[in-house]
Write a protein that binds this DNA or RNA. Structure first.
Length: 268
RNA sequence: GCUGGAAUCGUCUAGUGGCAAUGACAAGAGACUGUAAAUCUCUCGCCUUCGGGCUUCGUAGGUUCGAGUCCUACUUCCAGCA
């Protein structure tokens, strides 16, 4: 497939979308290293990052969602973090509108918009320009769902890069990340979230908090909690990969090749 | 050394005469345009021209039309007595 994003304007109305400067999309399964590379790239090319992560939108969910810290961000502007409280509803459609607005703003500043995340549905909504009908928050009828084949054309100037890892390496990375995550900080965060929201809201259906809580309440040993977290995490990674697999527009690269590739693409 | 109990798919587990064998986890594949880290589906002894075929339940025999299930011995493990 073509490595170049499509940039050949289709019709007058969407000329702006097609002809504007590229938007770099960096995606990959959980734990693939998106945060690190994206910040490094942003610093080099004057990028601003929009997170495409359905958990990072929630306030107060930091450690358990591996949200980048101020320190990690290192001055690179980030959007799409801490948008709503965990008990508030925020849908794909909301995210798409938000992301499009931010891309426009970033371009207006002559910076490079970068969309970084692992929520496939969000990314597809943006790059394939999904249209959401009906009142906000309403599920559209099945009859309106588009099949895979209707989703093949990227609408806009996107460079889409996926981070690829051998399965065993990805599993190892996930294990290590979980080991690091189980700390006093996570316990404190978990206690606060459980106290405020319980486990009834959708946002709290994030693998790690449930198991961290079970460990804290003595229902699971630390070992067992970590093990179960790992299974959840790895299953998530596999589902994400299954989703991305059908997207032929993704340029898959190993982590260390992404930075030079993007730089060459942008700078020439 | 004697006396109980136990050995079943990668792991745990159901199973007391009709079974390729239950459930869970793990693993693999997949669907998914409205909370998506969600939700849902399929596969999971081996082979198959998808009709079936073949080999399995610690090992070796035995009883039975038929044994994971009953009997005998052996091996290993837990456990009570020594």
């Amino acid at each position: 497939m073509s490595e170049e994003p499509r940039n050949d304007g289709r019709d007058e109305a969407s000329a702006e979308k097609y002809c504007s400067s590229p938007c770099i999309v960096i995606l990959g399964p959980t734990g693939s290293g998106k945060t690190g590379v994206s910040i490094k790239i942003a610093k080099a090319i004057g990028g601003e990052i929009i997170s495409a992560d359905s958990r990072a939108i929630y306030k107060g969910m930091d450690i358990g969602t591996a949200k980048p810290t101020r320190e990690e961000m290192d001055g690179v502007p980030h959007f799409g973090l801490d948008l709503v409280n965990p008990d508030e509803r925020f849908t794909v459609a909301d995210w798409k509108a938000y992301a499009e607005a931010k891309i426009k703003e970033i371009r207006a500043r002559n910076h490079v918009p970068m969309v970084v995340g692992g929520t496939g549905l969000y990314i597809d909504a943006l790059i394939y320009d999904y249209h959401f009908k009906g009142p906000t928050g309403q599920k559209i009828g099945d009859f309106e769902q588009k099949s895979c084949s209707d989703r093949t054309e990227v609408k806009g100037n996107f460079l889409i890069i996926g981070i690829k890892w051998p399965t065993e390496v990805l599993r190892e990375r996930l294990k290590q990340r979980i080991d690091q995550m189980f700390s006093e900080d996570l316990y404190r965060e978990t206690r606060e979230l459980v106290e405020k929201y319980g486990f009834n809201c959708g946002a709290m259906k994030s693998d790690i908090y449930e198991y961290a809580w079970k460990y804290l309440s003595g229902e699971l040993t630390l070992e067992k909690a970590k093990e179960l977290c790992f299974y959840e995490d790895y299953h998530l990674a596999k589902r994400q990969l299954t989703w991305f697999k059908r997207n032929a527009d993704i340029k898959w690269l190993e982590l260390e090749h992404i930075y030079p590739f993007v730089l060459k693409y942008i700078v020439g």
